[in-house]
Nucleic acid binder design. Structure first.
Length: 467
RNA sequence: GUCCCCUUCGUCUAGCCUGGCCCAGGACACCGCCCUUUCACGGCGGCGACACCGGUUCAAAUCCGGUAGGGGACGCCA
């Protein structure tokens, strides 16, 4: 194991969304690639908004994607004493001070500053305050360095420099005594000996403040890698109004974890012209330096293509298992029908998602209750009747059959009666599945079995005859 | 408003560091053709971009400067 230690630190205020998942993926990949350690930490210092349900949802999403962590999950709420201790240390050394300004007052000042086009930073009222009023509520502020600049070499974006005058004295402890985010992250990352912080680039602006804290606390400063945001089709930050953003929602819509992972890894990262990456390949080829600097738009079409690819090449047995829940929401039971694995094989090349596959699989288990009348109307009633009869006649003479045998049988029927394949195949397909979009005739017949096939053709024949 | 970041086909991107092999390559989508008993799969082809303006250079997508556009941050949220 190398010294590399990374972490994914979501705040439990919702489910795991695709942006978070990609950040987690990049962390995981770097850890696996370098033989490092991947840590999961739950940032629940905001007691108001953090929920157990969210924690569970995040863990569920991580597990589904197979992003297993080596240490944790750790909860920041378990470390309040540790943070307190460090706040005290800064207070004692004069690197932090108590601020008695009322929050409403600060809000007013901030708004005023923005309106007047000034920097909305803390004005330092309590910075040099001599007397310490007793019993007054206060927050603790970090005494930020005044002049100079704070810079860091971002692994993705390169050198980023901030003038220190842009940074004000941030609050590290609230009136109620709880520590704030920017402070906790620093303490945690330092105590967990994180070497590389990979996170969304909405944190770029927090980085200089955190670096100053590391320095004030005497901790080594880790490396940073800020990954660009994921946008919706309108180039605005991806959100619910763009459609599903939850990883679990993608699972429920019938996406395979390897497809989502493959999609996510290519969103912002590349390895030449390669598009398809197995888990092992991405681990082997991942290089944080190849992550792009600009935001990218989430594109469901491409995700669909990848999902179709993985369905096409997936193991039928596994797909059958994964398909089951999608079938049961349709109240389809596979007990009295064909082997689901066989069904899957006939559908693999035709489905982009498991939902779609389930939809197309229904007819195998539930004989059609109605037929595609428009498609049926393209054929003569008399032709339909004779085709159905001829096919049943032929079918009744075979007991066992394979796909090529059935295909040959249909050709025979055509030849003997002077029909074209389209005149025979299509009606039978409608008789068997109810519609026109289905696997090859041979595949359906073999999967359904001769007996059931005849039964369905008979039913269709009666339907046509009765018209 | 201030600060930070970003800018190659509609979308994801290669190329940029180490100028010439790039009148810019791949993929998704789209359009055509082929295959075909349907729907798909597959095969072949097409459409389509270096944000803009200047500079450096024999030569710039690549280096430099500026402009414009987009995003992010500015919380006792994380």
């Amino acid at each position: 194991m190398s010294e590399l230690r990374v972490r994914f630190a979501p705040s439990p205020t919702g489910y795991l969304h695709v942006g978070g998942a990609r950040t987690a993926l990049f962390n995981w990949l770097l850890a696996k690639n370098k033989g490092g350690t991947f840590i999961l930490r739950i940032e629940d210092t905001d007691v108001e908004r953090s929920t157990k349900e969210s924690v569970d949802a995040i863990l569920e999403g991580m597990k589904w994607l197979g992003l297993e962590w080596d240490e944790g999950p750790f909860y920041q709420s378990d470390y309040f004493p540790l943070y307190k201790e460090h706040v005290q240390k800064l207070l004692d050394s004069g690197k932090a001070y108590k601020c008695y300004c009322a929050s409403e007052e600060l809000d007013t000042k901030r708004n005023l500053a923005m309106q007047e086009g000034r920097k909305p930073k803390y004005d330092g009222t309590c910075r040099e305050r001599a007397e310490q009023p007793d019993g007054q509520p206060y927050v603790v502020r970090f005494r930020a360095p005044q002049g100079g600049v704070t810079a860091f070499d971002d692994l993705i974006k390169g050198t980023i420099t901030f003038p220190n005058e842009e940074l004000d004295d941030l609050i590290i402890q609230r009136t109620d005594g709880t520590p704030t985010y920017n402070f906790c992250v620093v303490i945690d990352d330092a105590s967990m000996r994180i070497t590389t912080v990979i996170r969304g680039d909405d944190h770029v602006n927090n980085t200089p403040r955190q670096i100053q804290l590391y320095e004030a606390l005497g901790f080594p400063v880790p490396q940073f890698a800020h990954v660009p945001m994921i946008l919706g089709s309108d180039k605005a930050r991806l959100s619910k109004r763009h459609g599903a953003t939850s990883v679990i929602a993608y699972r429920d819509m019938g996406y395979l974890p390897e497809a989502l992972l493959n999609y996510l890894v290519r969103l912002g990262w590349s390895n030449g012209d390669d598009e398809i990456f197995s888990r092992e390949e991405m681990v082997q080829k991942f290089d944080i330096g190849n992550v792009g600097r600009s935001a990218s738009v989430f594109n469901t079409e491409k995700l669909n293509w990848l999902n179709a690819h993985y369905i096409k090449n997936g193991d039928p047995e596994r797909l059958a298992d994964l398909l089951l829940p999608h079938l049961s929401v349709r109240e389809v039971t596979t007990l009295n029908g064909p082997d689901l694995m066989v069904v899957v094989r006939t559908l693999q090349e035709r489905a982009q998602t498991l939902e779609e596959m389930a939809e197309r699989a229904v007819f195998y288990y539930n004989a059609p209750l109605s037929y595609d009348e428009v498609a049926l109307a393209k054929f003569d009633k008399e032709l339909l009747l004779s085709v159905f009869s001829a096919v049943m006649e032929k079918l009744s003479k075979v007991s066992e059959a394979d796909v090529s045998g059935i295909d040959a049988l249909f050709k025979e029927v055509c030849n003997e009666n002077g029909w074209k394949m389209g005149q025979v195949g299509q009606p039978v397909r409608i008789a068997l599945s109810g519609g026109t979009q289905a696997p090859g005739i041979g595949e359906i017949v073999v999967t359904l079995g001769i007996e059931e096939t005849i039964r369905r053709i008979q039913a269709a024949r009666e339907f046509v005859a009765g018209k």
